[in-house]
């Protein structure tokens, strides 16, 4: 009897363990499957022409050209958005830590950042669209940049905040005890200590921005040209994939797969690069 019970709970144990291992493999497997699908379909259609030329006449019918417009457009959009988001989120993250700490306003700000983080990009896009209607703006690079900045802001602050919270507070206390103002603590100590965190946060947000489609759909529009000014529309890689897939021509669809591959490579390079850079930047912090 006792033996039996002993036996049964061990069977349960192995079943549970097996199920967990299986789930883990499914997760890792799906990542592999996604990368493999994109690589397998995208690689054959990937040519130098695709990344070095803008669409020529009849591009969406299968004639020649490339998606340089979308690559440049995406880089402009994501860089602009990331710069604005960084300008706002760096002071915000420092302020949250050094001035607000665990005060109730700090809690409110953190809660609203979390909530903003959960608002889907299509809603940001729709909001950006209403904003632009109200201001009488047309779909433009600037509109896309502003909406991406709003979208990236909570991601960036959260990432920075997480790093700051893991930092030892002793350094800050020591500086305060020596008579530093909070501003000096923020700019000379916290800022330096969080350098790796800033790198990660910026690249994380940049990756989000470059891959986001629903928000720029409304606000940046799409064009076959490389945008020459902030007020002109700008193409973007995700939309290039989407629009090319929407055509009935196999050649164009193949190019959509190649575009998806380019986008995936950029995003994965950013994700891996941020780890490497964060490790490098870690040299400047005191442990």
């Amino acid at each position: 009897m006792k033996m039996n019970r002993f036996h049964r709970r061990h069977i349960t144990e192995s079943i549970a363990k097996g199920a967990m291992l299986l789930s883990f493999l499914i997760m890792a497997g799906s990542l592999g499957l996604i990368l493999w699908t994109v690589l397998y379909k995208g690689l054959p259609a990937l040519t130098w022409e695709m990344i070095s030329q803008t669409p020529k006449g009849g591009f969406y019918l299968g004639k020649e050209g490339g998606i340089l417009n979308a690559i440049i457009g995406s880089l402009y959009l994501a860089s602009g958005g990331t710069l604005i988001a960084l300008a706002l989120s760096l002071p915000m993250a420092l302020y949250l830590e050094t001035y607000l700490g665990k005060s109730s306003w700090g809690r409110w700000v953190r809660l609203s950042l979390d909530v903003l983080w959960g608002i889907p990009s299509i809603v940001y896009g729709a909001f950006g669209f209403t904003l632009m209607l109200a201001l009488g703006m047309r779909a433009s690079l600037l509109g896309g940049i502003i909406v991406l900045a709003l979208l990236e802001l909570p991601i960036m602050v959260r990432a920075m905040d997480e790093v700051i919270r893991r930092m030892p507070v002793d350094l800050e206390h020591a500086a305060l005890a020596l008579g530093s103002t909070k501003l000096e603590v923020a700019t000379r100590i916290v800022l330096r200590q969080m350098l790796p965190g800033i790198v990660t946060a910026v690249l994380l947000a940049f990756g989000r921005g470059i891959g986001d489609a629903a928000s720029v759909l409304f606000t940046a529009g799409y064009t076959d040209n490389i945008p020459g000014s902030l007020l002109r529309p700008a193409a973007s890689l995700p939309l290039a994939v989407f629009f090319q897939l929407g055509t009935p021509f196999p050649e164009v669809q193949a190019r959509a797969y190649a575009s998806a591959l380019i986008l995936t490579i950029i995003v994965l390079a950013i994700s891996l690069g941020s780890r490497w850079l964060a490790a490098k930047a870690g040299k400047f912090t005191l442990k």
Binding site: M27, I34, T37, P238, V241, T264, L268, L272
Partner: peptide, 22 residues
């Protein structure tokens, strides 16, 4: 951690392409 980060970093449209193909 890197695996989950990668999975989370893949853009929505790439998931869409994967969805259509697979």
């Amino acid at each position: 951690k890197p695996l989950l980060d990668l999975l989370a970093a893949i853009p929505s449209v790439v998931y869409g392409v994967w969805g259509m193909l697979a």
